[in-house]
Every structure is written in structure tokens, then in C-alpha cells.
Amino acid sequence: MTVTLESPARSAFSIDVFQALDPSTRRSASANQCGGEAVGLPSLNGKTVAFISNGMGSATLLHKALASRLRDRFGVAETFLVRKSSVSVPPSPDDWEKIKDTADAGVTLFGGCGSCSSRTTRDAIEMEWAGIPAVAIVHAALAGSGHAMRRMSRMDDYPLLEVGYPLAPTAVWPDEDIEATADALLPQIVARLVGSRVLS
């Protein structure tokens, strides 16, 4: 059966001119906080590096592997771990005060899920705003979440360090994979914390 419309269907929806309000929020608040990226350190020798971990997947083990390498190979004097109380929340106020008081640089990890990858990105950005050079480690599958957060934070070009497949975003990885991942990430982490902070 063929139905022929006598007039365009859309004309049935024609109504008088009207106004509709925008339902969305606009970016504004972070403009007051945003200080851009912190200045890179001359070197990591003798410095203190804070790790902010959400406990996701292999975060705790990857922290240990990276911390030992930073101490052994780059002369970092001290590292400490801030373990957040949930995967996608900020550090507690006390932990945040400790970070601001004692850390020269920071590493946030691990962006292995939707909300924790964006919060991991945000943790690094907030360290930057506090004048502490930092780097966020996220899984490539969730990089888009980090990109959303850096846009919301007005840090659109803020680099993220990515870990990819075959490592699963939310799983605990085999020991040998953690060690290999730490070795692969280390040069990028150092490049983002010292000097001009440019990734090669």
C-alpha cells in the first residue's frame, strides 16, 4: 500500500517562534584555579615523588616498580604512596596537604576504568595547579575519559601516558608485564617531570 501525504508531515509540527533555554553548564569554575602546567624540575636527584593511586588493577604493584626505578636510577630521595579511599575520588584533604607540603613531583595511576581514568587525569592536573609537575598513567582504552577531563579542566593539550593492550585495563597483570611496563614508562615519566617536559 502506498500512502501519499497531501502536505509535508513536518508542517504538522510548525508552531510560532519560540525560545528554548540551554540546559547545559558552561566551563567556568576551573578558570579561577587553572595555573597551567608546573615548571619542570632541573633533575629528580634528591627529590620527593608522590604517587597517587586509586588501587585499580595493578596500580599498587606498578607504583612499587616505578618507585624503585626512580630511586635507583634517577637519585630520587624519597617516594610515598597516597592510596585514595575509592577509585574515582580526590585524595583526602590530609593527603592533599601532605602532597603539597612535601612532594616535588607526582605520578597518578591507574586510569583503568571510566571514572578512575578521568579522576587520575584530574589528580595530575591538580598537582600541576599546585606547582608540582606530574604525570597521569591511563590505559589506552580509557584515554578518551582522560581527554574529557583535561578539556573540562581547560588543559586540553595535557599529555597522558598510556598503557595499551594486551594488558587488560582493570586486571592485575603478571609480574613480568608489570616490570616491563615500568621499564617502558620510565623514560616518559622522567621526560614529563624534568626540564622542558616535552615527550620525545
Partner: peptide, 20 residues
Amino acid sequence: QPSRTFNTYDAFLDDAQKSG
């Protein structure tokens, strides 16, 4: 909040979809 002006309901729907 800012507002937008539309001549038809269809135009509003198209714009709302495009605006996310």
C-alpha cells in the same frame, strides 16, 4: 541560561540533538 530562538519544533529538535 542563554536561550536560542526557533521557528519550528523540528528545528529545535535538530538543534538539541546537534548540541548534545
